[in-house]
């Protein structure tokens, strides 16, 4: 298997983000502060949804955006999102707001976005004028959240033909 993308894998999965970039992205000293209002517009949510659907087909109908909105309304330490798990010292809200801003900028006033082409550029950090956290990190996190809603639930297991075998069935998250 040829891995020209190995660098991306290294960067995406390990928490290899320069502290200065994190500071710029809205560092928090307290993980217990009440989450502030989410400054993401409906149009930006649509962009995130389209991007996620291009990365993980099925994430739109599985309800990814509603899942993200619900999780972002939780205190950070209770969020079931990949961004919390990676331990990036940005709040989940700051992380997704950063993505929304970069997607708006990438759209650059045009009516449509080629989401599949954009995700491919994000995966290789080749989006022109991308600012803040690396595009490949956003790609990794959004892909993980998308996979969670499509494949990470009892319904997702069924889709894959797997027995879920729960000791205790999880509460619905979608």
């Amino acid at each position: 298997m040829s891995f020209t993308r190995r660098q991306f894998i290294q960067r995406g999965a390990a928490v290899a983000v320069a502290p200065a970039v994190l500071a710029a992205a809205g560092k928090t000293a307290s993980s217990h502060a009440n989450p502030p209002a989410i400054a993401i517009t409906p149009a930006q949510w649509s962009l995130i949804e389209a991007l996620a659907e291009a990365i993980v087909p099925g994430s739109r109908s599985a309800g990814l955006i509603a899942f993200l909105q619900r999780q972002l309304a939780n205190p950070p330490e209770q969020a079931l999102l990949m961004v919390r798990y990676l331990g990036l010292p940005v709040t989940p809200i700051a992380f997704y707001q950063g993505l929304a801003e970069q997607l708006s900028a990438a759209q650059d006033g045009s009516a449509t976005v080629d989401a599949y082409a954009l995700q491919a550029q994000m995966a290789t950090d080749s989006v022109a004028n991308w600012q803040g956290l690396p595009a490949s990190l956003y790609h990794f996190v959004l892909r993980s959240d998308g996979c969670d809603v499509v494949y990470g639930t009892p319904a997702g297991s069924k889709l894959l033909g797997l027995d879920y075998l729960a000791h205790i069935a999880p509460p619905e998250v979608l």
């Binding site: 000293a29 950070p76 919390r84 331990g87 010292p89 990470g152 075998l165 069935a169 999880p170």
Partner: peptide, 20 residues
Amino acid sequence: LYSSQLWARQLKWGGSPVEE
């Protein structure tokens, strides 16, 4: 302890952030 990789994340560190 729900059998779910999503819910498993709640078991992780939730205290003061550590810069790395």
